[in-house]
Nucleic acid binder design. Structure first.
Lengths: 181, 181
DNA sequence: CCACTCATGTAAAGTGTTACATGATTTC
DNA sequence: GAAATCATGTAACACTTTACATGAGTGG
């Protein structure tokens, strides 16, 4: 049963483990905290919920005012997500176009390469500010919020590392690009 | 012309900017250095090369012994990849299943959550060792190798940050998971 | 001669993005 | 009454993974 659903499905189950939510509510969650780790759009979420429903991993709750349809986790759903976490290895593939481009910086004039790295630094500063704003929110202590803090701390540390790297790289790139063909 | 090809196509053009290579040679490059930023398999590379050839961004060179077909960049191809680097914004979406799972760590017993974080630390140590081995290679100084060093430095710094985070998080998780349902 | 690496392709299935499409409720 | 937000869905296209398929040359 573990391979009935992919990463997105398990993420939905994990979110529903906290409490019932509508597809829209799940979407908002993906746009906020989870956006840094696993973005997803409504056009993926709704069909995936239908699939989870068909597999008996979630069930529908009572309809809400504006056409909202909350889903809640079934026992099978909780077992599925816990099994996924405990028994399966996470995929380690990471794709970052911004990082890929670094390998080709030597194709640019030094000034253009510097512009690119300045933008990378600026981007890191923006993300860092967003994460720091989240870190300042005081939320009630619970297992879930503690797990979120651990994820947040990873974001803070790697973003700081990225920022420091970009600030180091910007002057270092001067001699790393060729002037012309 | 810039949207005739996606990230993979531009990555292939960027690699061919250094010197002509066969599809297989490009594949090996994706499995080595580029694997950390943008993995790609042969089943993606060969059709993409055919597409680039059709678009006039690369041309075929003389056939090599074992059926190897080297491709070289055309002027249009070089212009395309440089334009991509200078004029288009890199996509910022990053997907990491290993990071996503952190948000659901509270669904596990503390010991299982700790096991997960220990594996994350171990994984970071492995990657760090790989990157450090690459860093120790002495390669001739050139614009290209300098750009690669900048990319490598990002890998080293973010991997170290990830390792330090995992070592910090492993004891911190103790109280972050719930014991049972 | 056997295994390994070099070398290239196609097909099917799964995943993700962008665009199309609609409608209710709330807030200004 | 208009705009924003809540709310759900489908369709087409693009991209990625996994499996299928084949063959030549090298090293032991």
């Amino acid at each position: 049963m573990s391979n009935m659903t992919g990463t997105l499905g398990h993420a939905l189950l994990g979110l529903l483990a906290e409490r019932p939510r509508t597809g829209y509510g799940l979407l908002k969650h993906f746009e906020q905290s989870l956006a840094y780790a696993w973005p997803a759009s409504h056009s993926q979420i709704y069909p995936e919920l239908a699939k989870l429903l068909g597999a008996g991993l979630i069930r529908e709750g009572e309809a809400l005012p504006r056409g909202g349809r909350p889903y809640e986790l079934t026992d099978a759903g909780l077992a599925e997500v816990r099994n996924w976490l405990r028994e399966t290895e996470p995929s380690r593939t990471v794709r970052s176009e911004a990082t890929l481009r670094l390998f080709f910086l030597w194709l640019l004039e030094p000034e253009d390469a510097q512009t690119y790295l300045r933008a990378e630094a600026e981007r890191a500063r923006t993300v860092l500010a967003e994460l720091e704003a989240i870190a300042e929110q005081e939320d009630p202590d619970s297992p879930k919020t503690r797990a979120y803090r651990i994820a947040l701390e990873l974001g803070l540390r790697t973003t700081r590392a990225r920022l420091e790297w970009a600030e180091w790289a910007e002057p270092a790139v001067r001699a790393s690009s060729r002037p012309s063909r």
